[in-house]
Write a protein that binds this DNA or RNA. Structure first.
Length: 421
DNA sequence: CCTCCACCGGAACGTGAGGAGT
DNA sequence: ACTCCTCACGTTCCGGTGGAGG
């Protein structure tokens, strides 16, 4: 929206001209991994390597558990260590195999096992149609054939569908299958490395798993501002043409993200967006102003993405609140917003939920910071919550209109007359 | 100090969808 | 194809509550 070029003009502009600011865009992509050991994680690398490398000396499995928030380097450090271990194994002709499974893409025990089997064997098995017991047999056969030490990495393990049962079961299956049961695999050792974003995750695992893992856990703290700045520097020198960065840009990016999350991916994303903003503004170099612009854009993207994935009822509740806000009625009570909500439901032809459920949805929208619900007491007027939209109405409404159920409301005006509607 | 409003929020239960096992 | 289970979403019921007004 910052210039008035038409789509064909933009396309031909982008296809025919090279970026004045960005030299190597790949370096600012999420999937790019800088060569060498990940920076500012030497303590974690040393500790993990010392622990896992024990497999070179004995056949005792080395299970461990890694946790830390998003973008704290868990995956990248694990990949690095595994890569080094494989190198060493090759040098020493040791029979070591590794496989990393993203549990965001494989959420059930069955699909995790299928993923491992397909990765290790030359003939692929179907992803459906087998029970878990059959899967275990298939996996045992494959492991037995290859033999050696296997390191399985379960990345983003808190995404496994059934938190209580499946997470426990998958550990149990993998850590025990080589050593116990009817099908003992004499020449196979299995180590499991689990990676989780959820700091409470380890507590929810049950006792037998904890005894298998012992006390071996590695905690990755968020990066601080200075560390984030180093991470940016490492990429910026190669990613941009010379003198494209105002000196204050990297410190500002680092400071913003350090305060928000300490997420290395986010800080790179911020810098990349800032570069794109500067480019669109036809600037000669990236300045603080472009960083602020990028920050605002990322915040809007985050919230619109959240709104899009909301269930229909949540969207309608939010729509009612947005309509009131648009009509100048801010800080309305739960009851008043519920009345608006019922009107909206009537218009869309949907059944209205009860006030009790409505109240829960308000709480949920409050927790994800799309609205702000403040508990107040009006004395005899009762105790309730004052609800305010915590985001620009235009963006919220436009995002909600993408939903087919709500689109019929595009030109709907709340009935005027009595109070807030 | 007591009342009483307009909701809050815990608990128990109902229902339909979807996965696992037979 | 059929039976269990589990889970998300929603309902019903109800005790609890901060504070202005009596």
């Amino acid at each position: 929206m910052e210039n008035n070029k038409t789509a064909p003009e933009i396309i031909s502009f982008l296809s025919e001209t090279k970026s004045k600011i960005i030299k190597t865009p790949e370096i600012l992509q999420e999937r790019y991994i800088p060569p060498g050991p990940p920076i500012h994680r030497s303590k974690e690398i040393t500790e993990m390597a010392e622990y896992i490398a024990q497999i070179f000396r004995s056949n005792i499995p080395r299970h461990c558990f890694i946790y830390g928030k998003m973008g704290t380097g868990k995956t990248i450090v694990t990949k690095y260590i595994i890569q080094e271990i494989l190198k060493k194994a090759k040098d020493q002709s040791k029979n070591i195999h590794t496989h990393m499974i993203n549990c965001k893409l494989n959420r059930t025990i069955n699909s995790i096992l299928a993923n491992i089997i397909n990765n290790l064997s030359t003939t692929s098995v179907g992803t459906r149609g087998y029970t878990i017991d059959e899967r275990i047999d298939q996996l045992a056969a494959v492991l037995n054939k290859i033999s050696g030490h296997f390191i399985f990495v379960l990345d983003e393990v808190d995404n496994i569908a059934d938190a209580q049962k499946d997470q426990t079961d998958i550990f149990y299956i993998l850590t025990r299958m080589a050593t116990t049961g009817e099908k003992i695999l004499p020449d196979v050792t299995i180590s499991v490395i689990s990676i989780s974003n959820d700091l409470k995750f380890y507590d929810t695992l049950d006792g037998r798993i904890k005894s298998t893992f012992g006390q071996t856990e590695f905690i990755f703290p968020p990066y601080n501002a200075a560390q984030l700045q180093d991470i940016l520097k490492q990429r910026a020198t190669q990613a941009f043409h010379e003198n494209m960065l105002d000196p204050s840009v990297l410190p500002l990016c680092a400071a913003i993200i350090a305060q928000e999350s300490g997420d290395a991916r986010r800080v790179i994303e911020l810098l990349r967006n800032a570069a794109e903003v500067a480019e669109r503004r036809n600037k000669e170099k990236i300045t603080e102003d472009d960083v602020r612009g990028a920050q605002a854009k990322m915040e809007i993207d985050r919230v619109t993405a959240t709104i899009e994935t909301l269930p229909v009822q949540h969207k309608i509740v939010l729509y009612g609140i947005a309509m009131n806000s648009e009509n100048g009625y801010d800080r309305l009570t739960t009851g008043e917003n519920y009345d608006t909500y019922k009107n909206v439901c009537k218009k869309t032809g949907l059944d209205a939920i009860t006030l009790r459920r409505f109240s829960d949805i308000v709480s949920e929208l409050d927790t994800i910071n799309i609205i702000s619900a403040r508990l107040v007491s009006y004395g005899r007027g009762g105790k309730t919550r004052e609800i305010t939209l915590a985001f620009p109405i235009g963006e919220v409404k436009e995002t909600l209109m993408q939903d087919a159920t709500l689109n019929v409301l595009r030109h709907y005006k709340l009935p005027r007359g009595s109070g807030f509607f």
